[in-house]
């Protein structure tokens, strides 16, 4: 009877459901991130800012450096100057667009450099442990004890104004916190069983650091570092505002805020615009970093 036979299970080898290739870690991260509407909005804003910085020459309606005193401090909405002009008659819109370049560079570069140096210091201190750890981390703590703004200002002041010096001093400011996170995570990982298992299977210290420590440590440090980008931007703008960072006539937002300071009673809206940009940019990066941290489920 064929009807009975068809009720019986088929050849077991055929009916066994194949194990689905289980979704990886990153698809889970993507899923969680997509649920976070605020983070997505921030991500879009960050993306727009990056595009704006890259294509600034194509987008900007005017030369950001060309000014004419005859049209200085026009209000927002003036014909031909949608966001007005600054104290030297330069187009605010163009200058704000070009300013994104500086802000992004000043935000990302120091964090990236500090990420490299700080991770190295922290991982070495955490992995070696003992007295080496104490010496390295207590030295780091000395830098950590300074308020970050004060340290950045002091270093920039000592090194002299200029973009490069500002970048260096910001890097120095961010090395201690990143090194501390790296050290803490490395110390945890070093005592895990899989590191001992790796030693038991004949891995040398370099392999263990490269494979097991870096693999488990870089994620948390990276997430922590993304949160520092917005801080870096604000500090960089602060340095420029104080005349320690970018020098005139470059269209840097912090610097623009400073030079427009005198016009605050005549054109308050125009004078506030660079500040608005700093605010939007840094908060976008902050929200994005938070969203990323939640999605990656990293506890720092």
């Amino acid at each position: 009877m064929t009807s009975v036979a068809s009720l019986l299970p088929q050849d077991p080898a055929k009916t066994v459901a194949p194990i689905e290739r289980s979704p990886g870690y990153w698809s889970g991260v993507g899923k969680r991130f997509r649920k976070d509407k605020l983070a997505i909005a921030a991500g879009i804003l960050v993306l727009l800012l990056i595009l704006m910085a890259i294509f600034a020459p194509l987008i900007a309606p005017m030369d950001p450096y060309a000014g004419r005193t005859i049209r200085r401090l026009r209000p927002v909405g003036t014909d031909g100057f949608p966001l007005g002009t600054d104290e030297l008659g330069r187009d605010m819109l163009s200058r704000l667009i070009y300013g994104a370049r500086y802000s992004l560079m000043m935000g990302v570069t120091p964090v990236l450099m500090a990420f490299g140096v700080g991770s190295l210091i922290g991982i070495i201190a955490g992995y070696v442990g003992g007295k080496t750890n104490t010496v390295m981390m207590r030295t780091i703590d000395v830098f950590y004890a300074f308020p970050s703004v004060l340290l950045a200002v002091a270093l920039s002041g000592a090194l002299g104004a200029g973009i490069q010096n500002a970048l260096v001093s910001l890097t120095v400011v961010f090395i201690p916190p990143i090194a501390r996170v790296a050290e803490a995570v490395t110390t945890q990982v070093r005592n895990r069983d899989y590191v001992e298992a790796a030693r038991a299977s004949g891995a040398n210290a370099l392999t263990i650091i490269r494979v097991h420590v870096l693999g488990n440590v870089l994620g948390p440090i990276f997430v922590y570092a993304t949160g520092l980008i917005s801080v870096s931007m604000i500090l960089a703008s602060g340095l420029s505002f104080l005349g320690l960072g970018v020098r005139p006539p470059e269209p840097e937002w912090g610097l623009m805020l400073n030079t427009l300071r005198t016009a605050i009673y005549n054109q308050p809206l125009v004078a506030a615009l660079p500040g608005v940009m700093i605010f939007i940019t840094s908060i976008s990066f902050n929200v994005l970093a938070d969203g990323l941290r939640n999605a990656m489920d990293v506890k720092v």
């Binding site: 899989y194 001992e196 298992a197 790796a198 030693r199 038991a200 299977s201 004949g202 097991h212």
Partner: peptide, 17 residues
């Protein structure tokens, strides 16, 4: 290590990276 003598650990969840 690993070639002459190797070891399995108590808690496999912790001993695998």
């Amino acid at each position: 290590r690993g070639r002459d003598v190797s070891m399995i650990f108590q808690e496999p969840a912790l001993a695998l990276d």
